[in-house]
Computed example of a mutant assay.
Amino acid sequence: MTDYDVLRVFCAPNGGYGNELGVVREGSVLPDRQDRQDLAAKLGFGETVFVDDPERGVVDVYTPTARLPFADHSCVGVAWLLDVPELVTPAGTLGTRLDGEFNWIEARAEWAPPCTFRQYASAAEVDDLAVPAPGGETAADLPLGESRGTLYAWAWEDEPAGRIRARGFPARGDGVDEDEATGAAALLLTERLGRALNITQGAGSQILTAPQPFGWVELGGRVFLER
Rank of each mutant, 00 (worst) to 15 (best):
V9N: 08
A71W: 02
R33D: 15
T89C: 14
Y4Q: 10
L151V: 01
D128F: 05
G46D: 13
A166K: 02
R108H: 13
N19T: 07
A186T: 03
F50D: 13
V24W: 11
A185E: 01
Q212V: 05
G183H: 05
T116S: 15
G168N: 11
L81A: 01
G27M: 11
S122N: 06
V84E: 00
F10V: 04
C11V: 07
A186R: 03
A79L: 00
A184F: 02
D72K: 01
S147W: 07
T200V: 11
Q201L: 00
D53T: 09
G27S: 13
A79C: 01
G95I: 04
R118L: 14
P54R: 05
Y17F: 15
Q34R: 12
E106L: 11
L68S: 02
G57P: 06
T182D: 08
L225Q: 14
T96Q: 01
A112Y: 08
D127A: 07
V29S: 13
V78R: 03
G46W: 06
P170N: 08
F45E: 10
L82W: 00
H73W: 05
Q201T: 01
W154I: 00
L225W: 11
G15C: 10
F50S: 07
A41K: 14
A166H: 06
P160Y: 02
E218F: 00
F70Y: 13
L144G: 11
D60L: 09
F224D: 14
F102C: 12
R8L: 12
A133R: 10
T93A: 11
R8Q: 15
S74C: 09
F224T: 14
E178P: 09
L43F: 03
A140F: 11
W154T: 02
S147E: 14
D52G: 08
A185I: 00
A66Q: 09
G183Q: 02
R56G: 12
D5L: 15
E157M: 11
V84M: 00
R227P: 11
P13G: 08
L144Y: 13
L39D: 04
V29F: 08
E218M: 10
A171C: 12
A107C: 07
E137S: 12
G173E: 12
D60K: 12
G162D: 06
